[in-house]
Design a protein around this nucleic acid. Structure first.
Lengths: 340, 340
DNA sequence: TGACGGATGCAAAACGTTTTGCATATAGTG
DNA sequence: CACTATATGCAAAACGTTTTGCATCCGTCA
């Protein structure tokens, strides 16, 4: 970063014209230049520490090599980092950079941020949410290549990627049933969102495959927080015919279940097995014993969204896709066979 | 975003020259244009949905209005979101956008990312860490306006911002002493980092102000995780003359203290009071009872870093500053007067 | 030897702004 | 009415690239 060196300096130093330098450094046009000359130019450019000005090349090419990432509440969830990292890794591998904006829940602010991205000529936008939900993509993004991340869109023209909530439920059922459990309950999120439906239905389907079914009293709902999980679990575990295993909507509710079990003098996993969803390191790894849980694939979803977006930029005709990414089981120590 | 409308279209539609449009829309030069004309031009621009191309203006002005944010491990801590949000809010208020890159722990990758930022002509860089430490800013950033975030630099020319670790320790002491505690222990991080020294020394200073001092056996160290805190707390609380209050290096260690207390049949806060540092919502709010803790000011630090960077961009002569941001106490329910 | 083809490199235009210097119109003064 | 001062708007150049069309050079073949 001494004083900026531009392509003209390189040309002068290499004793050739600017055009030749540009051709030599371009992937596609380098054939137009003598191989020895190309090598020479590259050496000189390297020595001078030349790096092309992307403002200029973007202006000329109508391609900024920047992708926008618009998200909602980045501060409230620890998942944001993984999603951004996945997106950034994929972008970086393809020579792109990420501009991140988050709007909180303020629609007006969101519009402003999107306009700011457009002023910077972003090539496309990832429209992200911090939990799987249905969204309406703001009108400002009309006509701009867009991929929806951790949400589904009412616009069928847009690609989207979400976790395989159904599969997560299935896996949880599989894990608990194969450990020998028969009296199993689910502590679900009281909110009417795809994750609560998907996980419950997958769970039912997983049980059904083994000839089991979830009785009506086998599902209780609560606020998707530790307190909500605690309260629900207190109710479930205080009954004489208490379940031997709990499938919790998320790790926070599972933490509440731990607290309830502790309060009632029940040991995990000896007296009651617990499974969560999310794989929040901060919780799943911290609980004692560690919590077995289905990992939400935020990193992979971030990657997928960017790769799909870049693909659509290359092939403007490509048809949209709606991807579901599996949620792998992470086993720690919260599941054991039932006692008797 | 129909078909891109540029300044020429606006000029044509408004019946004036391109220059006039540019002057009319510029803060500084709008005086050169008739006020009525300015109004007219702004109206036309609004109707057409004109938004200036920042690639072009950046190229012309040698100012991209983009700031780079280089961080280490964005995925491993939930603080990243707050830091980014703080930085982004401040940037956005001043018409700038943030390009976020994270390098993990790979130095080579970090260099690449920084070069990518430079190709995009970022006006300056925030060099961020996820926890307070001493860093050496990579040579690539030589000569580029840089502010260090949540770390201190060995380069005295760079501004930096960190949490007031010492103050956090003091506040914890103040809280516990004024609740009536006298036998207090600290569970510290075994790592040799500014946070562990700062919090311990501040804690000592806070106690000293009330004529108390921390005996050698009053400080135990461990891995800064739940397991580490649990282990340390088990040792401390099993002694007959057990402390009535624990100051924990962070919320994760405090969570371990909760587990240890529960294991030993001790109630929080009746039998033992606990204070943490971090204010990790996911933990502090989830514990039962809630954990009183000193909040790490990541949002504010992110803001400060960007504001300082923008200030240095305006006044290239400005002298560097090393800011310490206070860590406010967040009271929940984990502190009560000692029993007898 | 003259013409031709291929290989190679150059000049110039364009991307969309901002700003300087200049020309014109309008108002103010003697 | 002439002359100056001021207000106002325009043409052109520049920022750093990429790419098209053209010129030059060399070797080859008739």
């Amino acid at each position: 970063m001494a004083t900026k060196v531009n392509i003209r300096d390189v040309a002068k130093a290499a004793g050739v014209s600017v055009t030749t330098v540009s051709h030599a450094l371009s992937e596609t046009h380098s054939s137009r230049v003598n191989a020895r000359t190309v090598e020479h130019i590259k050496a000189v450019a390297g020595d001078l520490g030349y790096a092309p000005n992307r403002l200029a090349s973007g202006l000329r090419n109508q391609r900024s090599q920047i992708l926008g990432l618009v998200s909602d509440e980045i501060t409230t969830t620890p998942f944001a980092g993984s999603m951004i990292q996945g997106a950034q890794d994929a972008a970086s591998e393809h020579g792109h950079l990420l501009m991140v904006v988050n709007s909180g829940l303020d629609n007006e602010l969101e519009r402003q941020e999107i306009r700011a991205l457009q002023q910077h000529q972003v090539d496309g936008v990832i429209y992200a949410r911090m939990f799987n939900q249905q969204v309406t993509v703001p009108g400002e993004l009309q006509g701009m290549p867009t991929v929806v991340l951790d949400a589904t869109s009412d616009n069928p023209g847009l690609s989207s990627v979400v976790p395989d909530e159904f599969g997560a439920g299935e896996s949880a059922a599989e894990l608990l049933v194969s450990a020998g459990h028969r009296r199993i309950a689910m502590i679900n999120n009281e909110d009417d969102i795809p994750a609560s439906h998907g996980r419950l239905e997958g769970f039912r389907a997983g049980l059904a495959r083994h000839g089991l079914q979830l009785p009506p009293e086998g599902v209780v709902t609560g606020h998707p927080s530790t307190a909500g999980g605690r309260q629900a679990a207190l109710g479930l575990l205080a009954t004489p015919e208490r379940p031997t295993a709990l499938f919790c909507f998320n790790d926070q509710m599972a933490m509440g279940a731990y607290q309830a079990a502790g309060h009632l003098g029940l040991k995990i996993p000896a007296d009651v097995s617990v499974v969560g969803v999310d794989n929040l390191e901060l919780i799943a790894d911290a609980l004692w014993p560690g919590l077995s849980t289905m990992a939400l694939p935020h990193y992979e979803m971030g990657r997928w969204a960017v790769l799909k977006l870049l693909n659509e930029l290359e092939n403007p005709g490509a048809s949209p896709a709606n991807e579901k990414v599996p949620c792998p089981l992470v086993e720690r120590g919260s599941v054991a066979p039932p006692k008797h």
